[in-house]
Design a protein around this nucleic acid. Structure first.
Lengths: 153, 153
DNA sequence: TATATTTGTATCGCATACGATATAATCTTA
DNA sequence: TAAGATTATATCGTATGCGATACAAATATA
């Protein structure tokens, strides 16, 4: 019973699980990030800055695979919240340098509890630690594969 | 060198790879879906309808894990493109029944080529078929785990 | 059976994503 | 070194996502 359109069935799609899992994960973060008054993408930018302190818009974009059309408005919102500062580079006036403010730095001490809370959400008898490690390994390969592919265009 | 904030490093986050992989995958679909004048979420709705023909908004939402606040505007756009029809149920006036139009049906014959094209994008020496199968298996468990968890609230 | 609760859609507001395009600064190169 | 190409951001328009809320229809229950 080889159906002509079987490849179009939702269950057989590789893409939909990624889409669904990504949205669900973001929703899991929801309540924790609300306490910090951050959206999920804003949290990702803060993660980059907590790790690297000073970054151009471009550098943040390279790490998160986002372009300025997404980042610029988002960064302006973080600036309004006084978590970061935006300043034109003096050596290259095209670049905008993003820095953490004191307030932005301070937020890290509150965010530090989040990862453990999230990991608890993922803990489950049906999924082993080993399985998650392997999963992470594969998804990182998928990311580099796809981003290389999109680069070429 | 156990760093105090190591768990906040992007590389150690479980969530970011899902977010990045999902967006990259959607981008891979871009050119193929553009030929059909569909966005990626619109394509997902069409997949559901090609498989099931008649569905309420709710049923579509259950399959895609989306609510009416996302689906209603999206479905109206598909209606404008004359791919679907929307009609209040006569047996339960709260429900809206979504049906494929002839045009919507016809589009399936053009969409059928997409999955193979996408699979080609994923083909790579660094990832085995076996690995993808395992990956799909795990991500489906993650989805059911997280959606159960979110259900409880 | 009248009232309370639940259910199914829809609306609103805000924050992404992202293609397309604009603009200024920097770099290349003839 | 002047013109053309490239680079780094920004702007604009459209389409999601999603929390909060509204509203009517259906169901449950006292």
């Amino acid at each position: 019973m080889e159906e002509q359109f079987a490849k179009l069935h939702l269950q057989n799609q590789l893409c939909f699980p990624l889409y669904a899992a990504s949205r669900l994960t973001t929703q899991i973060y929801g309540p924790f990030l609300k306490e910090l008054d951050l959206t999920y993408p804003q949290y990702l930018v803060m993660l980059v800055l907590w790790e690297h302190q000073v970054q151009t818009v471009n550098q943040i974009g390279n790490r998160l695979l986002l372009e300025s059309n997404t980042l610029t408005p988002l960064l302006k919102r973080l600036e309004q919240k006084k978590l970061i500062s935006r300043m034109r580079s003096e050596t290259d006036e095209r670049s905008v340098i993003i820095r953490l403010t004191d307030r932005g730095h301070l937020l890290q001490t509150r965010a530090v509890e989040i990862p453990d809370k999230i990991i608890n959400s993922f803990k489950d008898h049906s999924i082993t630690e080993q399985e998650i490690v392997l999963f992470m390994h594969t998804i990182k390969k998928v990311i580099s594969l796809l981003s290389n592919q999109l680069q070429m265009n």
